[in-house]
């Protein structure tokens, strides 16, 4: 009885105590939660319309009426930063979810079956990894045409390789474990063994990695938008905003400063959540 009793206490640990013990995880989750709230409530909390142009208030420095100032079209930077949270969070999440799913599936199947399937997929992984990530992304976007959907397609085509590699390495070890053999001898189907028995034990490393991947995806998505190949103006996205403010850096630094800072803080949140998850799940990078 005793072990299960202690187990129960651990499971019922109050949230406050749990978060106190995992400060990194808590801070990361807090930052992400904040951005999520901002993104969800953007229409309510943004003081102005993010794309409304008002010639009377062009290039105003930060002041009470416009805490982050205004840009050359008289648009309120704070409102644009708030609305930008929607797009940039979406970039980080969608840009990670599809590669994660594809990579996890490929890695599981390749690792479990081995042989020719494994050889083909892993050579493909080697080849894609040989290309500098951003260069391959840009080349694909060059063909598909600029836009956010092109970015997501390019991410799905390129981003899965890291996940496939991580999961495959785990599955290779786990498929020879005793519980896997037990499942085989019980006559379970291969699909069931792969996805119900092996995958849940293999996925922790990928989950932790997906957080640092979210940072890279966010930075790449913003960079591609900055270059003019992703999100298109006048949509409020942080990378686009930095690009728009570039011509005014000598006179109106606030146009570039605040969207960039938002990227840094959101990325920090993802990094902390990744580090915290790693500590909690006992995953080493």
């Amino acid at each position: 009885m005793m072990p299960s009793a202690t187990n129960a206490t651990r499971m019922n640990l109050p949230w406050s105590r749990f978060l106190g013990r995992h400060l990194t995880l808590a801070t990361g989750a807090g930052i992400l939660g904040l951005f999520l709230m901002v993104a969800l409530t953007a229409p309510l909390i943004a003081p102005y319309d993010p794309i409304f142009q008002n010639a009377d208030v062009r290039l105003l420095p930060p002041a009470l009426a416009h805490p982050f100032g205004t840009d050359n079209f008289g648009r309120d930077i704070l409102s644009r930063v708030i609305w930008g949270a929607r797009i940039d969070l979406q970039i980080a999440v969608i840009g990670v979810v599809f590669p994660f799913l594809i990579g996890t599936f490929v890695g599981t199947v390749a690792g479990f079956f081995g042989g020719i399937v494994d050889a083909i997929f892993m050579r493909l992984v080697d080849i894609i990894l040989a290309f500098p990530f951003l260069v391959l992304m840009l080349s694909i976007i060059a063909i598909l045409g600029p836009g956010l959907s092109s970015f997501y397609i390019a991410m799905a085509l390129v981003g899965w390789v890291s996940y496939a590699r991580l999961i495959r390495a785990q599955i290779l070890v786990l498929k020879n474990s005793d519980y896997a053999l037990a499942a085989v001898s019980l006559g379970f189907s291969r699909t069931r063994i792969m996805f119900r028995h092996l995958l849940p034990n293999a996925i922790a490393g990928s989950l932790v990695f997906s957080m640092s991947d979210a940072v890279l995806v966010l930075l790449n998505g913003a960079a591609i938008s900055y270059l003019g190949l992703g999100v298109q103006p006048p949509v409020a996205e942080w990378g686009v905003m930095v690009a728009e403010g570039q011509s005014f850096i000598t006179t109106a630094w606030w146009i570039t400063l605040f969207p960039g800072l938002s990227i840094v803080v959101l990325a920090f949140g993802f990094s902390l959540l990744g580090d915290g998850l790693g500590e909690w799940l006992g995953v080493r990078e």
Binding site: A222, G239, V242, G245, T250, W253, G260, V264
Partner: peptide, 22 residues
């Protein structure tokens, strides 16, 4: 260093230009 990983190079470049060039 954790903060530094999240610095977008295109933005950092502009900030350095503001500081050192402008």
């Amino acid at each position: 260093s954790t903060l530094g990983i999240g610095f977008p190079p295109f933005w950092l470049a502009l900030m350095l230009i503001i500081l050192f060039s402008v």
